[in-house]
């Protein structure tokens, strides 16, 4: 809305120009996640689920290897793998909460950054795991 429009008294604003202002106000205050927003959330949920599947496969593989070798897995190393499983869940919930009133385009960007952050955390924990177990 321009400055010229803002200086016009409310009583002088014609009905035709006053009506389109309502969605603009609602867009900042009371917008909720629409159908497109939920589609974005579900699509990214699949990618985040792949991250969880990746971490679970790592956990199963590592536990199997340690049991075959007859060696107990150190607890800090186990916690790093559990962290890889929990990270996608936590980041997805935070992104879902953070985009509850955002437009679909903004939600896409936030979920994309969240996906990259999950990858960062996963690779960080994998590097910590390798430094803990020595390989």
């Amino acid at each position: 809305m321009t400055d010229a429009e803002s200086t016009v008294p409310a009583s002088a604003v014609p009905e035709a120009s006053a009506t389109p202002a309502k969605p603009e106000v609602r867009s900042t205050a009371k917008r909720r996640r629409g159908r497109a927003g939920w589609i974005v959330a579900v699509v990214f949920a699949v990618f985040y689920a792949f991250d969880i599947f990746e971490a679970l496969s790592n956990l199963v593989g590592v536990l199997q290897a340690y049991s075959d070798a007859g060696v107990a897995l150190p607890t800090p190393a186990l916690l790093t793998i559990i962290g890889q499983i929990a990270a996608p869940v936590v980041v997805f919930v935070l992104a879902l909460w953070g985009t509850r009133r955002a437009r679909s385009g903004s939600a896409v960007l936030v979920f994309l950054v969240g996906f990259a952050v999950v990858a960062v955390i996963t690779l960080d924990l994998q590097s910590v795991f390798r430094s803990l177990v020595g390989f």
Binding site: D51, E54, F115, V118, A119, V120
Partner: peptide, 10 residues
């Protein structure tokens, strides 16, 4: 590998 690329872009 996908995660590695995502981490580079993060």
């Amino acid at each position: 590998d996908v995660q590695g690329v995502a981490a580079i872009a993060a």
